[in-house]
Amino acid sequence: MFTKILVAIDGSPASEKALAAAVDLAANSRAELIALGVVEVPEVVGMIDEVDEIRQGTEAYLRQINEAAVNYARSRGVVLRSVLVRGHAAEAIVKYAESEGVNLIVVGQRGHSRIARFLLGSTSDRVSEHSPCSVMIVK
């Protein structure tokens, strides 16, 4: 049914659940699996160094997370391709899914408070709204 699955990971407990679900799904359906990490940098900044510091720190962190994801998938007998992109999380996930022609996106739901959800919105909501394919939201 699903031949190409994209799972968004950021190191949060919610994204770990999403990864576990995606790996199970890929194992059962023999689908190709891609893990995507998004490096977000604030746009309104006071210093160039601030941008570089955040970018390099986030990339290094996500690189570790993605390596762990690859090893986790391998332990379950699944080959996982792992990629980092820069941008806004929801927009980057949807764009990457389009460019790769995936037919399922798996994301975790972080369980923000009502205030945080109102102020920040939710990445999973935005992905499900704009995605070109099916979306699985893992709680």
Partner: peptide
């Protein structure tokens, strides 16, 4: 396209 930063392998 957003920049593809890194392809991470184990």
């Amino acid at each position: 396209e957003p920049v593809i930063a890194l392809d991470v392998a184990p």
